[in-house]
Design a protein around this nucleic acid. Structure first.
Lengths: 204, 204, 204, 204
DNA sequence: CATGAATGAGGATTCATTCAT
DNA sequence: GATGAATGAATCCTCATTCAT
């Protein structure tokens, strides 16, 4: 009990640091983010960072994990709870996804793609824990729709990434190029067109 | 006449340097690419690089320009030459895109997305010279299809990015995560599913 | 009585810590030894170390003291107990010295020489408590031999370091260079040659 | 010719840097010497150091090489030129050695012994290029003395290190402990006693 | 024009030491 | 007393950029 304050602090630290890391990696990218700044943002000293994460790479890993796993779990739960027609579930999922990612999570796919070419560990983790699970959620909806005769016969695991590719592109555009150029691409219009055309295409 | 060789040499330099830059940016990313190595790969001295490109950023800019503009022009020309049914043209375009990008160009969207958040110039250039033109090409096909009654009534500029989003995702996957994890996503199957569903969805 | 265990514990601590320090300084050198590791090896927490030794330098000091003083006292006692001919005593001493130092003490002269140039305190301590006493022991034997007519007339304090210089070199070689290079120097042969030649040279 | 000044400069640099390194390693030891300071002492910028020596360890290696090889070669030449009686040559060599090492070279054995336990490369190099050659020089004199009947029959390679062990000890004492404590050990008296006793012992 | 030697700001990481609990 | 979380000074090394030749 005497160490209560410190203990509580220590338990909370990794999460606080990961949050600071997410904010900075998102804003500046992996290479341009200084450990010093992550520490400052987390309200701790430079050296303290290394009590929790031995290298910058490990921190990045943790950031990805902390930011995505809870979201994925939430989506999985939401989908598992749905009982309505598959097309409606799919539509709901796409609507959610479009709104999501505001908090910085949207930057993660971009960061991961930048690093994954050289970092096998992050590539593996992302493939298995994020992409595979994400695809499975979507595939579940698709398979259910096929089973119920709401969708034509398709391979759910081949179609799954087609479902979210436009969502990813819209998010990346919004957070990068779209910030500087009003440009030709309207994320909202794009997602509406995608949802509409996807469901038409899936109609038996 | 005695300067002919040197003149030609000098004129070719920027292109050679940009090619070297493309190769290295592709392989290692922007931050991890050293100017020294670009020079070595281009067969010139480090200092010489700076006679052609004042900063690393300018070099990156040139790399993007040199790598993409010819490809886009080629695609524009190809599309302009097509006279067949719009669905067939679209199918042909997607097949080409899937095959394309082998040579390193595929890395460029990734590099640009990584930098664009902080670099307004690159964001603007990419939005206008690459994305806008690319979308216009696709929109042209879509509009023609609508006009000929081969596609249902859609907004071509909203649908255009939906057409190539899965192509982009497939290329990024193949070059990054896919290199380390055989994982859940099969780029070829994904593109096939996409093409099929897109055209079904567009059917009047 | 209830504090008996703790008392004993506390009294034993400095020795246990010094032993841990000796092992690590020996293995890694002064600079490369981390206080953290000394604490771990001594079975205590990092902070506890500082209750016994205020700085790393003080710890080093204690390590030298604890490791050498008992040995020197033992040698002094052994020599004082000898009654035989001086050449035999000297031979016995050299044999002992060659065998000694296995346990880590051999590293101390090396450590001290590395630090002594910058640390007057350690230099003084070592000169007075270790070298002077060591030389006195040897000089005692030499003087006795001279008095008994077993050695020619020599200055015992000038000859004393000549007696153990080859012993020191042999030990240093064995523990450093000799570990990586079978090399040209054979410590055992060297010590045998030294003993033989020393005694021949001392013959009246 | 136009790059003459620079070329000459570049050729001289490694030697200048090694000299600066020798001075600082000698004064502060390996770990306590900062690359920054070596650069400053050599009159160049920190980064320039790394154009010539990729790591601190490589610099140390070079320092050892540059400082010792010329001396050894000089001693080899001197010995090869001697034609007089072996005892006189040996006496001359010991006198030289006692005077030598003033310039900082004397610190090298100490530095090497400190590092060699953990650095196989430096151990190997020192064993082969320094110790083996040094022993061979001494052994040559000894063997010649035996052949000419000036020395008793001995194993030259076993006796060689006995010849210079007291020289090494005297130099180390003078440069480290002796600087702070007038202490019990008088290097000059020691070397005189050594020379005398060594030659007596070698008498047939 | 071309070169490549030189620069020095910048950043990741380590570790002796302190101090609240 | 004992602990170990926290600190931040210290140091190696990298690399974009400059400029004398």
């Amino acid at each position: 009990m005497s160490d209560g304050r410190r203990e509580r602090r220590k338990a909370a630290r990794p999460g606080e640091i990961a949050a600071a890391g997410l904010a900075l990696f998102t804003e500046k990218g992996f290479a341009a983010t200084r450990m010093q700044d992550v520490a400052a943002r987390a309200g701790i000293a430079k050296g303290t960072l290394y009590l929790y994460f031995p290298t910058k790479e490990e921190l990045f890993f943790a950031v990805v994990r902390e930011a995505l796993l809870p979201r994925i779990a939430a989506v999985e739960a939401w989908v598992a709870a749905q009982r309505g027609p598959a097309p409606e579930v799919l539509r709901g999922l796409l609507a959610q996804a479009g709104a999501m990612g505001r908090g910085g999570v949207a930057a993660i796919p971009r960061l991961v793609l930048s690093e994954a070419g050289r970092n096998k560990a992050i590539a593996r983790f992302y493939a298995e824990e994020v992409v595979a699970r994400g695809m499975r959620v979507v595939a579940t909806i698709l398979a259910r729709g096929v089973a119920r005769g709401e969708f034509r016969a398709i391979d759910p695991m081949a179609m799954a990434p087609v479902v979210f590719a436009p969502v990813l592109l819209a998010m990346q555009w919004r957070d990068t190029i779209g910030r500087h150029a009003k440009g030709p691409l309207d994320p909202a219009a794009m997602l509406a067109a995608h949802t509409e055309n996807l469901l038409r295409g899936l109609t038996p």
